[in-house]
Simulated assay, not measured.
Amino acid sequence: MNSKLKNDSTDYLFKAILSLENEEDCYRFFEDLCTSAELKAMSQRLVVAKMLTEKKVYTEIVKETGASTATISRVKRALFDNDTYGYTLVLDRIENGEKE
């Protein structure tokens, strides 16, 4: 865990997210919380991570998502070079229909 991110405000945000029960709750909360550009950027990164795990190449990812190669590289580092495994955790759970 990145201790630079850990604080009471972030804990409160994560508790709020964990309180959401369905996609409708998510849409309502994130529409209030984020700009459409912020939400688009976050969802784009998750799709990029999924495509990277599917062994898609950069050109295909750029074409399909519109993500920059810098964004793809950043996601790739987080996905394969970090020890947080956040993307992997979420993608595996989505794939298996799980929620903790």
Rank of each mutant, 00 (worst) to 15 (best):
M1K: 10
M1T: 09
N2L: 11
S3C: 00
K4S: 13
L5M: 14
L5D: 05
K6M: 10
K6A: 10
N7K: 07
D8W: 00
D8L: 13
D8K: 15
T10R: 04
D11Y: 11
D11S: 10
D11E: 15
Y12K: 14
L13D: 06
F14N: 04
K15A: 13
A16H: 06
A16G: 09
A16V: 14
L18P: 00
L20N: 08
N22Y: 03
E23K: 11
E24W: 00
D25Y: 08
D25Q: 06
C26K: 08
Y27D: 09
R28A: 12
R28F: 06
R28P: 00
F29N: 07
F29D: 06
F29W: 04
F30D: 06
F30P: 05
D32V: 04
D32R: 15
C34Q: 08
C34S: 11
C34K: 07
C34P: 06
C34R: 04
C34A: 15
S36Q: 12
S36N: 04
S36P: 04
E38S: 13
K40L: 12
A41N: 14
M42Q: 04
R45W: 04
L46W: 05
V47W: 03
V48K: 02
A49G: 04
A49P: 05
K50Y: 07
M51W: 01
E54Y: 01
K55D: 15
K55I: 00
K56V: 01
K56C: 02
K56M: 00
K56Q: 10
K56T: 00
Y58N: 10
T59G: 08
E60M: 02
I61V: 09
I61G: 05
V62W: 02
V62Q: 12
G66I: 04
G66R: 08
T69L: 09
T71A: 10
T71I: 13
T71F: 03
T71G: 02
I72M: 04
V75H: 03
R77V: 10
R77S: 08
R77P: 00
A78F: 14
A78L: 15
A78S: 14
L79M: 07
F80M: 07
D81G: 00
N82C: 05
N82Q: 13
T84R: 09
T84F: 11
Y85K: 15
Y85C: 07
G86I: 02
G86T: 05
Y87D: 07
Y87P: 08
T88P: 00
L89W: 08
L89S: 12
V90F: 14
V90D: 03
L91D: 01
L91E: 07
L91G: 03
L91F: 06
D92F: 01
D92G: 06
I94V: 13
E95Q: 14
E95C: 01
G97M: 01
G97C: 03
G97A: 06
E98M: 11
K99H: 04
K99T: 06
E100N: 11
E100L: 12
